[in-house]
Design a protein around this nucleic acid. Structure first.
Lengths: 325, 325
DNA sequence: CAAGTCAACTACTACGTATTACTAAGACGT
DNA sequence: ACGTCTTAGTAATACGTAGTAGTTGACTTG
């Protein structure tokens, strides 16, 4: 268990000063190509790698970012993939944490991280975010901004789906909403209501307020008998599955009597019977974009161009013209 | 943007030496209660937190662990939750990376991490794992050991499901296998074959070798007509859903003509029509246990008691006695 | 009461890097 | 030939902590 080589060891082997080694490894100029080569050669021979702790102490930069995620309820692996990969390419290490707001606060003024990216559904923590030197980007704000600018909004798929359903002949809608602690659930709910209004169709109501498929099923079972034909817009695929289940248990055929749409394109949705019309979200790109934006903030650069086309409606069997029985 | 307080600042305010502050914060004894109190008071006043980079440089311990995961194909969020939470409680920060074997190698001798926990389906990297001072624990080995010891094995649910199906009257089985790059897929396949043998029932074969539901469907569509009644053991819920889809498209009823079991209890499985018999895995506990084990390795302690009861068969509608038409 | 013991605390230093200020030696213009 | 500029390199230092090796002074003990 010999100790790791240091820049001094490399310097000795290459016959230069430690300063020179440092200059080579930080990519500065003022070093001749020949010397640079000698240093790299020596470093390779010793299998030298800079000690990050020492570097961090000297530069007062940690090179570390934190991603705050709610482990439950969302399919966050792809988001993580995008975020982690992007950060890594930019030279940052990413830690994953799941924290309460208080803990996020503590994180922010610990200076342990250069930036914190929060996918937590909760609103951003207290003002400390302002004072803190740690960059902070919350997806909830992010969501709202996307919503506001429209550039990258939840809007398009919802509108597209509802307009298409109306074209098919649907006039009566129901929204199965997700947990209002999630900005995305709120956005979908609001947009559902706005679109019902704009298209001048009937809304049977907005039911449920969690991500539970059981609840969705129960809400459908509680509907009056004369509500069909009906188009159900669910806030995600689990709710949609529950709604289909409830419809079938009542003897309503899907998509004959009831058309159903979901959101997320869950792994099983394509194989569902009937297969589920849903919204595919490119979570990898979403994660990557969020991270690029955080890094731009840290570096004082301006925000990158918003991504477009991150969401796409996938039409499947669960949507059809209303039955005319 | 004033600089963060250091232990010297705390010492000055408390009227003691920096050494004393350090001793207080590392929890050593030899400090009177009164002094300790004064130091903590001063630290709180300044909102002091030890600089981790400096501490790390001094102790030559980084307090960081890495978790290597394949982002695609598995539901790893709960595993991550268990692992991250456990590590955090033990004072470690966890970074998430998705890497090739070569990159894992680089990670191992970078000394950047005290330990690396790999959920990667690939086999462990080269011998460097032996030489490296960085602790390394791969789930693939882990899997195999669980398999070998039986204490925490994949075995129980597979055997339980098959025995129950035989009790119900099934005599003909089919296994839809997952990607052989995953140790868990291989284990399930092997155990399927062993159990077919042991129970003396017929196996129509082992089909598919990926986690694709489409492939599963096609495999079922390619079966001969006279194969029903049949019991299909799928390596996960996606494959099971594809198999059900294929069965229904051929006009086979599920579970009348074909009983199907999955694995993982995916979010939509309970709402599937028919709802899916599957194996629930407590991934949070699995992640936590894996992490505990890695930390024990790092600290030179003996491995913690293996967890039991991490998997449980959930009986649902997709399994029934074979039809007798 | 002297010697020994112990608790409580401190001065000093090493950890490995990046950076600042500096030097030596050519290159260049007039 | 002289001073100035540029290039290529070096010596010295600070970053903030933890731990080593003391140094007190009070207390015990034979």
């Amino acid at each position: 268990m010999e100790k790791r080589p240091t820049s001094h060891d490399v310097a000795r082997l290459a016959g230069v000063s430690q300063t020179t080694v440092s200059l080579v490894f930080t990519g500065r100029n003022g070093i001749s190509a020949a010397t640079r080569e000698r240093v790299l050669q020596a470093a390779a021979e010793l299998n030298y790698r800079p000690n990050l702790a020492a570097r961090s102490m000297r530069t007062r930069r940690t090179g570390r970012l934190a991603v705050v995620i709610p482990f439950a309820g969302l399919n966050l692996a792809p988001i993580l993939e995008g975020a982690v990969t992007t950060a890594r390419e930019a030279g940052y290490a990413v830690e994953v944490v799941s924290l309460s707001n208080e803990e996020i606060d503590a994180l922010l003024d610990s200076s342990e991280y250069e930036g914190v990216l929060s996918f937590s559904p909760m609103p951003a923590p207290r003002e400390s975010a302002e004072e803190s030197t740690t960059a902070f980007l919350a997806l909830s704000e992010f969501d709202q901004e996307m919503h506001a600018t429209g550039a990258f909004s939840d809007a398009q798929p919802m509108v597209e789906m509802m307009e298409r359903l109306v074209e098919l002949g649907h006039r009566r809608f129901l929204h199965v909403a997700g947990s209002p602690t999630f900005p995305s659930a709120v956005a979908r709910r609001d947009l559902y209501l706005a679109t019902v209004d704009r298209l001048g169709v009937e809304s049977v109501g907005v039911v449920a307020n969690s991500w539970s498929g059981i609840t969705a099923k129960e809400c459908v079972l509680a509907l009056p008998d004369d509500v069909i034909p009906l188009a159900i817009i669910a806030a995600n695929d689990i709710l949609a599955a529950g709604a289909i289940r409830g419809s079938v248990e009542r003897g309503w055929s899907v998509p004959g009597d009831v058309s159903v749409t979901g959101w997320d394109d869950a792994a099983l949705s394509a194989h569902f019977i009937p297969s589920l019309t849903t919204v595919f979200q490119d979570r990898v790109r979403l994660g990557a974009y969020s991270m690029r934006r955080l890094i731009a903030t840290i570096r004082g650069q301006e925000a990158p161009e918003p991504e477009t086309g991150l969401q796409k409606v996938i039409w499947r069997e669960s949507v059809a013209p209303p039955s005319t029985r």
